[in-house]
């Protein structure tokens, strides 16, 4: 699948975007300082593992698709694996050596993160997940 198609699928019909508020999940808000992206991420942890997650909110195509891909790649991972996954993504946006394979679909952001402030859109859900892990 082409990068654009992957992005569009996650933006337009993400299975992780749900307009519900399940109180059994932990809700994390992540909001951009420089634009209007505002995501709510809902996470369920059992035995040190992210067993389920979904999101909603108002955000651009990049922040939305990035959140969808992030959740897809992190569900069923334990906290250490998620931490490693996030650090790998951060290495990509910081132009440091990273593992392409481990990013899976998130590799579609490889070029987008070089487009000025769109990097903050792509990174926004990661900020939210990190906040949750540090709480």
């Amino acid at each position: 699948m082409e990068n654009r198609e992957i992005l569009l699928n996650h933006y337009i019909s993400s299975p992780y975007k749900k307009e519900i508020y399940d109180q059994t999940y932990t809700k994390i808000e992540t909001k951009s300082d420089s634009c209007i992206d505002h995501l709510h991420i809902f996470l369920k942890k059992e035995n040190n593992k992210l067993v389920d997650a979904y999101f909603n909110g108002e955000a651009c195509s990049i922040a939305t698709s990035s959140c969808s891909i992030l959740l897809k790649n992190c569900i069923n991972k334990n906290m250490e694996e998620i931490k490693e996954y996030i650090e790998n993504f951060e290495r990509m946006i910081n132009d440091e050596p990273y593992d392409e394979e481990k990013l899976q679909e998130a590799i579609v952001f490889k070029d987008i993160v070089k487009q000025g402030n769109r990097v903050s859109c792509a990174y926004l859900p990661y900020k939210g997940l990190k906040k949750w892990m540090n709480e």
Binding site: C35, I36, D37, E58, A59, C60, S61, R118
Partner: peptide, 21 residues
């Protein structure tokens, strides 16, 4: 189309508009 996505699209053509509240 989310306003910010339109603003980014216009930016590609060096048109500066603001998106948001």
């Amino acid at each position: 189309v989310f306003s910010q996505d339109v603003a980014y699209y216009l930016n590609k053509y060096k048109v500066c508009v603001r998106a948001g509240n």
